[in-house]
Simulated assay, not measured.
Amino acid sequence: MTEQLTDSTARIADARPCTLGEGVFWHPQREQLFWFDILGRRLLSQQGDQPLEWSFDARVSAAGWVDDSVLLIASETALLTFNLATGARETVCALEADNPLTRSNDGRADPWGGFWIGTMGLNAEAQAGAIYRYYRGELRRLFASISISNALCFSPDRRYAYFADTARQQIWRQPLDERHGWPSGEPQPFIDGRVAGLNPDGAVVDSQGRLWNAQWGASRVACYDSEGRFLQAVAFPASQVSCPAFGGAGLSTLFATSARVGLKDDSLAAEPHAGKLFAVEVAAQGQAEHPVIL
């Protein structure tokens, strides 16, 4: 199939530029969007027309929701709870705290209440990262030797997890144990971006099992069916699109974060919206994000 880029009517959903936007997700109880600027060490949100922002002492990258007021947030050294009402922060467990050369990156809650989180080298060093799952009080390493962990998401039938190593330009599909959601068997290649020169970044699966993948450097989020076949791609006005999420009424708005990191002055002049948050209406419905069970 010839890959066609859909001309989107993507709008700027939030004009605050992030150095490295990531980890966007829609809180289903609060009906509120959250996302991160990893290198800016901040969590961003909106409440109506009011922009919200919280600063952290370390790089923060991904989150899941615990209840109406508490998030589980991944920092470069820990998983921690964060109370949106009070600002209180408590460490749940360490995350490669003994390794000063890595940080957290992509993460998402699974249908069993577990939280998957990937790490990577501060300078994307080869095979410096890993992918973990926090479940029922235990943080367990699932996959080692990952260079740039990304695309952690789950099929609506609970059969599969997906993950990417952006440096290897591939996404894998991992069968899951039906009872507790642990990996069952070996991961299988799902999407290979090497031929087309695509770099898979964050991803999300919609209610029909289609995977929507932000592709770093390609100004787009691409949609694939449940067998990994390309369906369409939605264009965004920034080359470094990093992470998608469904939110809004009916979970039919596709949001996407982007980044300015690494762009030189001439590139930034050509991409004045780099680092901003975008939104576009699509003919798809997302899954509600699963709660994290601590």
Score class of each variant (00 low, 15 high):
M1D: 14
L5Q: 15
D7I: 12
T9W: 14
T9R: 15
A10C: 14
D14S: 12
D14C: 12
A15G: 15
P17L: 08
P17Q: 15
C18A: 14
T19S: 09
E22M: 02
E22H: 01
W26V: 05
H27Q: 05
Q29Y: 04
L33D: 03
L33V: 06
D37H: 12
D37Y: 02
R42A: 07
L43Y: 07
L44H: 13
Q46H: 14
Q46S: 13
Q47P: 13
Q47H: 15
P51T: 11
P51G: 08
P51N: 13
D57T: 10
R59L: 07
V66W: 06
D68S: 13
L72H: 08
I73N: 10
A74Q: 03
E76G: 04
E76T: 04
L79W: 03
L79T: 07
L80W: 07
G87T: 02
R89D: 12
L95P: 12
A97M: 05
N99V: 02
P100G: 11
T102Y: 03
T102L: 06
S104D: 03
R108Q: 11
R108H: 11
F115H: 07
W116D: 05
N123R: 10
N123W: 00
A124C: 11
E125M: 00
Y132E: 09
Y134T: 01
R136P: 03
G137I: 00
R141Y: 03
S145V: 00
I146H: 01
N150E: 02
A151P: 05
A151H: 04
L152I: 08
F154H: 00
S155R: 02
D157V: 03
R158T: 00
A164P: 04
T166L: 00
T166H: 01
R168V: 06
I171C: 09
R173N: 05
Q174Y: 04
Q174V: 03
L176H: 01
D177M: 02
E178T: 01
G181S: 03
E186P: 11
F190N: 07
G193K: 03
R194Y: 07
V195L: 15
V195T: 15
V204Q: 07
Q208Y: 08
L211G: 08
L211M: 15
W212G: 05
W212N: 09
W212Q: 06
A218L: 07
R220G: 05
C223A: 14
C223K: 09
S226Y: 08
L231D: 08
A233K: 10
F236W: 13
F236M: 09
P237T: 04
P237V: 07
A238P: 13
S242H: 00
P244Y: 10
F246L: 01
G247D: 10
G248R: 09
G250W: 09
S252D: 15
T257I: 02
A259K: 01
V261P: 09
V261Q: 14
K264R: 13
K264Q: 14
L268Q: 12
L268D: 07
A270T: 11
A270K: 14
E271Y: 01
H273T: 13
H273V: 01
G275K: 02
G275I: 04
L277S: 12
F278C: 10
E281V: 10
A283L: 14
A284N: 12
Q287A: 01
V292K: 01
I293G: 08
